[in-house]
Amino acid sequence: MSETSGFLARPPLGGGDGERLAWRRVTGAAPTVVWLGGYRSDMSGTKAEALADWATAKGRGYLRFDYFGHGESSGDFLQGTITRWREDALAVFDELTEGPLVLVGSSMGGWISCLAAMARPERIAALVLVAPAPDFTSKLMPLSIPPDALEEIRRAGVWLQPSQYGDPNPITLALLEDGARWSILDSAVPIAAPVRILQGGEDPDVPWRHALELAQAIKSQDVVFTLIKDGDHRLSRPQDLQRLVAAVSEVTE
């Protein structure tokens, strides 16, 4: 089956015209697999494309989208927050899908997947999380922000953090303050669906112990944590993509 694409209208932030979320969809059998990307990534990344190829070949329903301020979607990235991106995911679920869902979340998308699963538990068949980064705005980001940069964030509202992946990462005061509203690791995570977690042992952005903390916090007894000892944060090598497709295949059958 071929992939179709479109835009989902969303209410504006701060006045002005409404925003638009870009999406791509493969129509197929349930449960529908939904890709939730990471911070500053988009739906055309290697892992998202690999799942699109798999879904097309298997006749499986598959949906991917770009959050507000990401990829092909409209909006100013600097206005983005966990609240907004969580709302984007729920809008996509509610307006573009029917029936059970398998959420596949990478990095920040792992946190958004958990938040969305907690908000729509009746829709969730399973989760597959790649280097999940729950609570990263309070537990991971502050560790990489030097004191002078923290002062700049407080004064100017944003700091451009150097990134090994290309352009600097803008870190805003709004993102840090809003993220605290959605912390999930300080108590049990009420997700009952099966969960598969793939985590690189050489991940410089999300330590494997952080992802393991999430695995231990999730209430479901059907949780499998896979440590890929030589894996990095992206887990986009051919062997990593095979592991991802295998995990998604397992929980959709």
Rank of each mutant, 00 (worst) to 15 (best):
S41V: 02
D42H: 15
S44H: 12
S44F: 13
S44T: 12
S44A: 12
S44Q: 12
S44M: 10
T46D: 14
T46M: 10
K47T: 10
A48L: 10
L51D: 03
L51H: 10
A52V: 00
A52S: 15
D53G: 14
D53R: 15
D53Y: 08
D53F: 13
W54D: 14
W54F: 13
W54R: 11
T56V: 15
T56G: 13
T56F: 07
T56N: 08
T56Y: 04
A57E: 12
K58F: 07
R60C: 11
G61H: 06
Y62D: 06
Y62S: 04
Y62R: 02
Y62W: 08
L63S: 08
R64T: 02
R64Y: 01
F65T: 00
D66P: 03
D66Y: 00
D66Q: 09
Y67T: 09
Y67Q: 07
Y67N: 14
F68E: 01
F68G: 09
G71W: 09
G71L: 11
G71A: 13
E72A: 15
E72G: 04
E72W: 07
S73N: 13
S74L: 12
G75I: 05
G75C: 13
D76W: 04
F77G: 02
F77M: 01
F77A: 03
L78I: 00
L78G: 12
Q79I: 05
G80Q: 08
G80A: 15
T81F: 01
T83D: 13
T83P: 03
W85R: 05
W85A: 03
W85V: 02
R86E: 11
R86A: 14
E87R: 12
E87Y: 00
E87L: 06
E87W: 00
A89Y: 00
L90H: 02
L90I: 13
L90D: 02
A91M: 01
A91Q: 05
A91H: 05
D94Y: 03
E95M: 00
G99K: 03
L101A: 04
L101I: 06
V102C: 05
G105Q: 01
G105K: 00
S106H: 08
M108K: 04
M108H: 08
G109E: 04
G109P: 07
G110W: 09
W111Q: 07
W111G: 07
I112G: 02
S113I: 01
C114L: 15
L115Y: 03
L115G: 05
A116Q: 04
A117Q: 09
A117I: 06
A117K: 06
A117H: 07
M118F: 04
M118T: 08
A119M: 10
R120L: 09
R120C: 12
R120S: 11
P121H: 11
E122R: 12
I124E: 10
I124M: 12
I124R: 04
I124K: 10
I124Y: 02
A125K: 15
L127R: 02
L127Q: 11
L127Y: 03
L127S: 07
V128D: 10
